[in-house]
């Protein structure tokens, strides 16, 4: 049980007025806290030119903005490398020397052989008979028969 002396002291102590918070702290603390609140950040973004798009981007990227930015940078790099390689390929083609007539003949022959091999089961009716140069001795044999 608390004695009278302690009760009196308690009353006396509780009557002591506490210091008031400095008035100038309000603007400083509230201002700083308000500027960091998510709703204010969101409002600042939404006042831009494309609020909906930015809002969507914010919702998507907010959890890990640095990771997303890194990923975006990697993709940009990949596209840049890809485009730079596309640009050089026609130049290489233009600069390359045209194939010689022998090579063209050889390629055509290979193409023909391939066509014959593939199209052996499907005769190509549309293709006209071609003249096949034969040695003179063989030509004579044909004439005689």
């Amino acid at each position: 049980m608390m004695n009278e002396e302690t009760e009196q002291l308690e009353r006396r102590l509780s009557r002591q007025p506490l210091r008031q918070i400095p008035a100038e702290w309000r603007a400083e603390i509230v201002g700083r806290a308000s500027s960091l609140s998510p709703s204010v950040k969101a409002r600042k973004i939404e006042t831009g030119k494309m609020p909906v798009l930015l809002s969507i981007c914010r919702d998507l990227l907010w959890p890990h903005p640095r990771a997303w930015a890194g990923l975006a940078a990697v993709w940009v790099l990949i596209f840049a490398v890809d485009f730079s390689m596309r640009d050089t390929s026609p130049v290489v083609a233009e600069k390359a020397t045209p194939p010689s007539p022998e090579v063209i003949v050889e390629l055509k022959q290979q193409q023909r052989m391939l066509a014959e091999l593939i199209g052996s089961s499907q005769p190509r009716a549309a293709e006209p008979p071609k003249f096949l140069p034969l040695p003179r001795s063989e030509r004579v044999e044909i004439l005689m028969t």
Binding site: W25, P38, S39
Partner: peptide
């Protein structure tokens, strides 16, 4: 005290 108060209100603003 000011720093602590600031931290408290920033926390409340960031995490309503």
């Amino acid at each position: 005290t000011r720093d602590l108060l600031q931290e408290i209100f920033i926390k409340l603003a960031r995490e309503p």
